[in-house]
Amino acid sequence: MYIEPVTGIIAEFRHFYQMMPVRPLSARAQAFWMFLLYRANAAYWQFPLQIQLNEIAGALRLSRSSVQRARDELTRQGYLLYETDPGHRTVKYYLISNVRPHSMMTAESMLAGTKNYKALGDHKNGQPAPMPMLPKKKSRKKGKEEDKHDDDQ
C-alpha cells in the first residue's frame, strides 16, 4: 500500500477510514478515536493526553464499560496506547499514526504543514506561543503610526 508523505489531521482521518476494511472497528471505537483526535488537536498535539474516563463517557454519551471496551478494541487493533495509574483518575493516551504505522503521533508530524508551525513549536509548559501582532498602519499625515489594525476598521 502506497503511503503518501502528507501529514496532519486530514491525512490521519483519510488513512483511518481507508484502514477500516483491513482493521475494522465498532462504531463506539471509531467515536472514541475521533474524540481523542479532537482532544489531541485542541492540546496542540502534546502527548500524553490525560483524560478521565468519566469525561470521555459523558462526551460520547456511553457508559464507562462501553468506553473501556472501545479503548481495549483500539489498543488491540493498533490505533492507541494507554497507561493507567491506580492512584489517579486520569488515563494517559498515546495515538498511533495511521499515516506512519508503528509510530506515535507527534506535534512535529501533525503541525509540519501549518503556516504558524514555528510559533506553535516555541511553546513553554504546554502553552502555545502568543500569536504575532499585526503590523501598525502608517497614517497619511507625515508618516505617523496609528494604533488601528486592518481588522479594527
Rank of each mutant, 00 (worst) to 15 (best):
134 L>V: 01
124 K>F: 07
153 Q>W: 08
62 L>F: 11
51 I>T: 12
46 Q>F: 02
94 Y>H: 12
72 D>P: 00
22 V>K: 09
86 P>W: 00
38 Y>P: 00
33 W>C: 02
74 L>S: 03
45 W>Y: 15
47 F>G: 08
97 S>I: 05
69 R>V: 05
32 F>C: 14
65 S>K: 10
49 L>I: 07
107 A>N: 04
65 S>C: 01
118 K>D: 15
115 K>E: 14
86 P>F: 00
4 E>H: 13
101 P>R: 13
153 Q>I: 06
145 E>V: 04
100 R>W: 04
53 L>A: 08
1 M>K: 11
20 M>N: 03
10 I>T: 12
81 L>M: 10
63 S>W: 00
136 K>N: 12
130 P>S: 07
137 K>M: 14
34 M>L: 15
147 D>K: 09
119 A>D: 11
84 T>L: 02
132 P>N: 04
64 R>Y: 04
25 L>M: 10
93 Y>C: 04
128 P>F: 01
139 S>K: 03
118 K>S: 15
52 Q>P: 05
13 F>E: 09
137 K>E: 10
104 M>Q: 12
81 L>F: 11
28 R>L: 01
55 E>C: 02
101 P>T: 05
61 R>V: 13
39 R>P: 00
137 K>G: 05
41 N>Q: 11
107 A>D: 10
142 K>T: 07
6 V>I: 15
140 R>L: 07
50 Q>G: 08
120 L>Q: 13
53 L>G: 04
94 Y>G: 01
48 P>A: 12
56 I>Y: 01
78 G>L: 01
24 P>M: 08
64 R>T: 14
44 Y>P: 00
54 N>V: 12
100 R>N: 09
103 S>R: 13
16 F>C: 08
5 P>Y: 04
131 M>Y: 08
88 H>D: 11
68 Q>M: 13
142 K>V: 04
126 G>D: 07
117 Y>F: 11
100 R>P: 01
75 T>W: 02
6 V>F: 13
65 S>L: 10
102 H>Q: 14
37 L>G: 06
72 D>C: 07
66 S>R: 09
45 W>S: 05
39 R>E: 13
41 N>F: 03
89 R>E: 14
124 K>V: 13
76 R>A: 13
54 N>C: 06
81 L>D: 12
83 E>L: 05
16 F>Q: 06
129 A>I: 00
105 M>L: 15
113 G>I: 03
122 D>K: 12
125 N>W: 05
24 P>C: 08
50 Q>I: 06
99 V>F: 03
29 A>I: 05
152 D>N: 09
140 R>A: 07
123 H>P: 00
117 Y>D: 06
73 E>H: 04
138 K>R: 13
77 Q>V: 10
136 K>Y: 10
31 A>C: 14
75 T>H: 10
86 P>H: 01
34 M>T: 07
91 V>R: 02
92 K>A: 15
102 H>T: 06
152 D>P: 03
95 L>Q: 03
